[in-house]
Design a protein around this nucleic acid. Structure first.
Lengths: 147, 147
DNA sequence: GGATAAACAGACTCTTTTATCTGATACAAT
DNA sequence: ATTGTATCAGATAAAAGAGTCTGTTTATCC
């Protein structure tokens, strides 16, 4: 089973969450994030470049540089990050790979899968980064902090 | 976005459905299936070898050989095929890729994702091949037949 | 037994994803 | 201005997934 997000996308989410939490206005170094999340830093660099291009994060070069969120955490939606990194969603492709599978000529799993798909899409569309960090301090806080 | 089944697994499902439908006890040639479903036949060959090893399909060599289901369609579950081809499900891994994400120290998407996961797993566990072919004749029949 | 027709098996190629390396560029502090 | 520290960018490498090729084995039919 493959599953939903590519590795790159997982890293992107982790990094964005990290920035949203640590944030106090100041940019965070790539290296700080990659060390904390155990992500190869060159690889994360590439990913953050993409997010920068799409204005999800903002970068500053040179000393005192680093990365921070491009806008308020309440204005960044999960789906944007996924789209930015993984491209257009493949959630609308047939789960069984039938090329001709459509609503009125469905594959055997079409209707059931459609429900799951819509639930997932709703989650991606409606979840903003601030909502994701909300409940976090009581839970993952120690983990993220000690990394 | 990646998504749920690998290409190989999609092919496996298509092939099994095909066998379940065409079936009248007689084995079907690899080539017949691959042509009908537009699957590279060598590639499908590999996949059917795996399914054969796991007793999901049964093969006979030589003239009049071919593939047929290893047991009754009502005794083959979707999840078996997925496991056979794609290996142990990755549905239990954290959607965000956090290695330390568990129920009592969850990632921000844990609870919502858990619901979707369980719905999908339920579908995979409970759907048998005969259920999948049931509604099919009125729908995909023409497509599959004309291939 | 020989010819034929199928699955089986292993090596190989191509593509995509993931990861690494190296140098250039930009910024800040002194 | 020089130095140090950061991101940026492009080329490259390694690994995994998808697909191909060639030959072997096994069964059936004549």
């Amino acid at each position: 089973m493959s599953l939903i997000f590519s590795r790159s996308c997982e890293y992107a989410l982790q990094a964005v969450i990290y920035m949203a939490r640590v944030e106090n206005g100041k940019p965070v170094h790539l290296r700080t994030i990659s060390d904390a999340m155990s992500i190869p830093h060159h690889f994360l660099g590439k990913i953050l470049q993409i997010l920068t291009r799409d204005d999800i994060v903002q970068s500053t070069k040179g000393a005192n540089g680093g990365f921070k969120l491009g806008r308020s955490a309440s204005e960044i939606r999960l789906l944007e990050i996924v789209h930015s990194v993984d491209g257009a969603t493949s959630l609308d492709k047939c789960i069984m790979g039938y090329p001709e599978c459509v609503d009125d000529k469905p594959c055997p799993l079409h209707d059931e899968w459609k429900k799951s798909k819509e639930t997932i899409m709703k989650m991606l569309r409606e979840t903003t980064i601030d909502k994701m960090t909300e409940g976090l301090d009581s839970k993952l806080a120690e983990t993220a902090a000690t990394h």
